[in-house]
Structures are given as structure tokens and as C-alpha cells.
Simulated assay, not measured.
Amino acid sequence: MTHSPAYLAQPDEWTDARLLHALEEVVEKELNRHLKVAKDWMPHEYVPWSDGRNFDGPLGGEPWAPEQSKVTDIGKIALVVNLLTEDNLPSYHHEIATLFGRDGAWGTWVHRWTAEEGRHGIVMRDYLLTSRAVDPVQLENFRMAHMSEGFESDNGHSMLHSVAYVAFQELATRISHRNTGHQSGDPVCDRMLARIANDENLHMVFYRNLLGAAFEIAPDLTMQAVRDVVVNFRMPGHGMPGFERAAAQMAIGGIYNLRIHHDDVLEPVLRFLKVLEIPGLGPEGAKAQEELGMYMGGLDAEAAKFDERLAARKARLVARGKA
């Protein structure tokens, strides 16, 4: 990535509207690339419909019971968190449509992204209900509570903050889905989540490349946005019922934790864009770059402590004969 400060606007000249206009050609290029590599797939093909049967209620079927599920305990927790996150798609669409607009290449991308993300919630819910993987009543109650709260980003509604956030968040979601599939204990679930993870990876590439272009035209502002997002990062499902407890269980279960967040989400994006190596920044950009580097070092140390605690916990379980 090369940077030529001579042609860049001054930081106080970059409004969201100007940035959107300046990045329009990049969005169009990335959209065309995405459409060439993205493969359409049918959600119904990933659902074990032959396993389905009526639940209790108006159709007089069989009530749900925990022993009906093929999925591991940690798989159930992660599947509910992942699906509830996908369920809030209307709020996410509102958020990015408001920031990025509904016209031109930006609008085309916003609607395409929303349509692709919609498949994820469809196939996951169909799988969970058909396979009786989780309690359907609890799942619906959680959905109603979570969607009633809506979603509002932590990014101050800055366009650059939002691009930076989704570049990391899409990768985080991909990793969470992939690890949930591996830990689910059900090959059907694993295959379904692998398919979803492929989509999330393509979405990450789109936003990551867009973030790289933002560094080209407004390096100082983009560096500050990345610093803010990385330091304050939270998954979009943080407002759902019982999220903190579920997140702790997913961390212990190896679905998503500090080590995974540092090694598999933050580091790959920062390294690909060479964020910590960008030269020629102004005072504020250089300060943000330095703070970002210090934060990453501190996060790595925290992850090392988490690894130690997790290893000690596993050793205790082995000693008790519970592993």
C-alpha cells in the first residue's frame, strides 16, 4: 500500500459525504469482484427436513426435550448466540443503509449484503427447529427480547468507524460460526455453518479492501477509526439476554475468546493492511498508530494469561476425572 500525502485532503475537509463519494469507485470495483466469486446457495438444502416433526401446541405434536438434541452443550449455547446475532439483520441494515446510503454502488452493496446475510438466519433457524437442537420456546423468547432492543453501533455513526468495525466483525463472525460447527458434534450442523462462514469471509474481504482504500485517501482519520474500533470492540450480539454468561462459556469452550480474537481476527486484518507500518502519518494518526500497537501488545499479554487459566482449568478437570 502506497501513500502520497501531496494529493490528500486535509483531515478537517473529510466529511462522511466526501468520503463516501471518494470511495464510490472502490465500492463498485469490490462489488463486481464479490459478485464474480460469491456462489449462490439454497438454505433448504442444508436442513435435515426428514428429522422434523410437530411440536406441542395447536398441532398436538411432541414437546421439546434436551435429550432430543444431537448437539453438544457448548454447541447449543453458541448456536443460540450466533442465530440471535443474525436475527437482528433489520437493525444492521438500517444502520449501514443510513451511513452508506441506498444509491449507486453503495446502495447496491448494502442490499446485496443484506440479502446474503438473510440466508444465514433462515438456514440456522430451520436447522435448529427441524433437528430439535435447542428449546424452541426459549429461542423465540430470546429473539423477541433481542430484536425489541434493536441494535445501535458503538462507533459514533462515523462512516470510517463503521467500515473499520465490519472489517473485523465479519471475520469474527466467520470464526465464531466455523468453531461452533467444529464443536457442535453434528456433521450436518458443521456443514451448514461452514457454508455460512464462507459468506462471512467474502464480506470481510470486501470491507477489509475498502478499509485499505480509506487508508490511501485519509490515513490519519482511518488510523484513528481503526484504533477506536479495535480498543472498544464488542460483538453485535452483546445486548442479547444472557450474553455475558454465554460469551464466557464460549470462551472456555474454544468458540471465541481473547486468544482467538487477537490471533485470528485482529492480527490478520492489521497485518494484511500493514496498519502498524504505515509511514508519513500526521500527529493524530501517528498517536493512534502507537496506541494501537500498545493495545495489541497488551491484548496479547491478556490472552496469554487467559491461556494459562484455561490450561489450569483443564488440568483440574482431568485430575477429577471429568475431562
Rank of each mutant, 00 (worst) to 15 (best):
R125S: 08
M144R: 15
M144Q: 13
R132G: 03
V137Q: 11
V123R: 04
R132D: 02
V123G: 05
R132M: 03
F151T: 02
F151M: 05
V137F: 08
F142C: 09
V123E: 07
A133I: 05
F151Y: 15
V134H: 05
F142I: 08
M144I: 14
L139C: 01
D126P: 05
R143G: 04
L139I: 01
R125T: 12
F142M: 13
V123D: 01
D154N: 14
S131Q: 10
Q138S: 10
M147H: 07
R125C: 06
S148G: 14
V123Q: 07
P136K: 06
L129T: 06
E152F: 14
R125A: 12
F151S: 04
D154Q: 14
Y127M: 00
R143T: 12
R143P: 04
A133P: 01
D135K: 08
D135Q: 06
T130K: 13
H146T: 12
M144K: 14
R132N: 02
D135S: 04
E152V: 11
M124Y: 01
Y127I: 02
E140D: 10
M144D: 09
F142P: 00
D126K: 15
A133N: 03
H146V: 07
R125I: 05
G150N: 06
A145S: 09
D154S: 14
S153T: 09
F142A: 12
Y127K: 00
E149A: 14
E149T: 12
V137T: 11
D135N: 14
F151D: 02
D154F: 15
T130I: 12
M124E: 03
M124H: 01
P136A: 05
A133G: 01
L128G: 00
D126S: 15
R143I: 04
N141D: 10
M147R: 14
R143K: 15
S153R: 08
M124N: 01
A133Y: 02
S148D: 10
D135A: 06
R125Y: 10
D126L: 15
S153I: 01
S131D: 13
S153C: 06
V123I: 10
V123C: 12
E140K: 13
D154H: 14
E149I: 10
L139T: 01
L129V: 09
M144F: 11
H146Q: 11
S153D: 09
Q138K: 15
D154K: 15
Q138E: 11
L139P: 00
M147N: 11
V123S: 14
S148N: 12
S148H: 08
R125P: 00
M144V: 14
Y127P: 00
H146D: 05
E152T: 13
A145G: 02
A133E: 01
Q138W: 10
P136Y: 06
S131I: 04
A145Q: 12
